[in-house]
Design a protein around this nucleic acid. Structure first.
Lengths: 190, 190
DNA sequence: AAAATGACCAAATGAACAAAACGGTCAATA
DNA sequence: TATTGACCGTTTTGTTCATTTGGTCATTTT
């Protein structure tokens, strides 16, 4: 079987985006890494953005999968939310692509990158929102606006993991769980 | 009595910083508005930063005063925290100087401005932290790490007021209070 | 004598221009 | 038919240089 050129291109682009970010990745660079002509890329993807979208959509799917896998039906809602959010943010730190993307978003505000970050954050929000809806249905927590509660939880998580350590000692996983428990769950659980 | 040149300079600089921000304010501009020679400014302030610091320190003092005034000893801790934080963020939206400063910080990341923003945020944190310490002493809330709890409260407040409305209808003052109540206080109060 | 000033300086800034690099196309090629 | 890289118009980058800036200090004003 002949090499799958499309696959080669996607892999090359992933490498380059991970290493240099969106803006600093050139289509010529991608073509060279993939060992194809630049024109070939454009037989599969209309624009650089479209190639980028395909890759970041895979990333989001992967992230959702990781989050879903961290859920353990036999455990409590609180435990699961903590595990899922921790897993998602861990994922962000484990993958070169997310690290580079968030860095580029922070430092250069590249529009295409900002859009992707928004999509990632929406995906996380919807994931948690669904878990909250389910927990309300199952009467595990008090009724609340799932969107708003998911929003608050995520903001708190990001604050505890990323913002807190700008001026303090990083919090351990256990301390984050305890803080979340103390500040949110005790106010929600029956 | 002769005019107080120092006062004139401070007033002129405040106007200019409020209107144009730190970077776009020139010392010549300030001198012209204050009707003094440029050299005169340097008899009172060693550098542009020092002039800036004097003005932003007053701003922070004013902010603290506004927050302190919003406290009503006869009301509950929860009510007071809500009132204080709301007042502080309201203050930010009422004062041209804070608006301009936070905008310049976001858009240009001027180092001197970033420092001031950090000082402002530290001041808010310490204010809330003290109120939490007091509430713990008075046995109004469960024991907790005052620094961490203040941090969480502020992050949540800023998220609810500034971040939420990027993608949703703004929350009313009452809805913010309710969300804070539901997500934080019910977990802390005895 | 003390306070105030603006001409002056080195350093920083940004306008203007040229050169390079870019995303994307398409006629030639395999 | 699938693939390619030379090519095109546009954007980005590097460079130059005149202007502006924060800050000083000899001179002037009070």
């Amino acid at each position: 079987m002949a090499v799958d050129r499309r696959q080669l291109i996607v892999e090359a682009a992933t490498k380059s985006f991970s290493l240099f970010g969106f803006k600093a990745t050139t289509m010529e660079q991608v073509a060279k890494i993939a060992n194809v002509g630049k024109g070939t890329i454009y037989t599969f993807f209309k624009t650089k953005e479209e190639l980028f979208d395909e890759i970041t959509n895979s990333l989001i799917k992967e992230m959702k999968l990781a989050a879903e896998e961290s859920i353990d039906e036999s455990k409590s809602f609180q435990d699961n939310v903590h595990r899922a959010l921790y897993r998602i943010l861990e994922f962000r730190l484990e993958h070169q692509l997310t690290i580079k993307l968030f860095q580029e978003g922070r430092e250069m505000r590249t529009p295409a990158v900002m859009e992707v970050i928004e999509r990632i954050e929406k995906a996380i929000l919807n994931f948690i929102k669904d878990k909250i809806k389910l927990a309300i249905e199952k009467d595990e927590i008090q009724p609340c606006d799932p969107e708003l509660t998911a929003f608050v939880m995520i903001k708190m998580y990001i604050a505890l993991i990323f913002d807190w350590e700008k001026n303090h000692q990083p919090l351990t996983k256990e301390m984050i769980a305890k803080t979340l428990e103390q500040h949110i769950f005790q106010g929600l659980s029956k």
